[in-house]
């Protein structure tokens, strides 16, 4: 019985501690490609101006089911870690802004949302599957790229560790 418990404990530990699989890409440890856009509320978003903050840059779309799961979590993180220097920026890869505005209202995001396009996608290595998230350190360098559904708890731990640096 004791052995069984030990095995079960190991299994549960391995599940809970599973890290987020990072996408092997040439972008990690490189300077994040700069962009200046206007968000849906009309505010200018200049990535350069967030230097000194940890930036979570998320590419999403209204038709992406996994994105709908992640976005509310990212909005929570913005509230929780914003005072420590986290800035969540989101880029919608939808073809038009009408469904995006609806989704933002429905999800009550409260996050900056800019509309993406092919040029911005290509600048980040081609966004050819969603969701994709980049973590950018306070120095403006990309520390992680995460593609597809991920372990959000592990990602949060990574964000927290970046904020502590």
């Amino acid at each position: 019985m004791r052995r069984l418990l030990i095995v079960l404990a190991c299994v549960s530990l391995s599940i809970s501690c599973k890290g987020f699989p990072q996408t092997p890409s040439g972008f990690v440890h490189k300077s994040a490609p700069q962009f200046v856009r206007t968000d849906l509320s009309g505010r200018k978003i200049d990535l350069k101006s967030y230097r000194g903050k940890v930036v979570l840059l998320n590419f999403w779309a209204t038709w992406c089911a996994s994105c709908q799961v992640e976005l509310p979590r990212f909005a929570e993180w913005q509230k929780k870690y914003g005072p420590q220097g986290l800035q969540v920026l989101t880029v919608s890869m939808d073809d038009g802004d009408a469904p995006v505005r609806k989704a933002v209202r429905r999800l009550r995001l409260g996050l900056p949302v800019v509309m993406g396009d092919a040029r911005l996608g290509e600048a980040y290595g081609g966004v050819l599957g969603l969701p994709v998230t980049f973590l950018i350190g306070r120095d403006g360098f990309i520390t992680a790229e995460v593609e597809g559904e991920t372990n959000l708890n592990a990602l949060e731990s990574h964000v927290a560790s970046l904020l502590g640096r």
Binding site: A61, W63, M93, D94, D95, G116, D117, A118, G121, E122, G126, V127, L128
Partner: peptide
């Protein structure tokens, strides 16, 4: 799919 993706590749 989306046009933004089509344009990229």
């Amino acid at each position: 799919g989306s046009y933004v993706m089509f344009q990229q590749a």
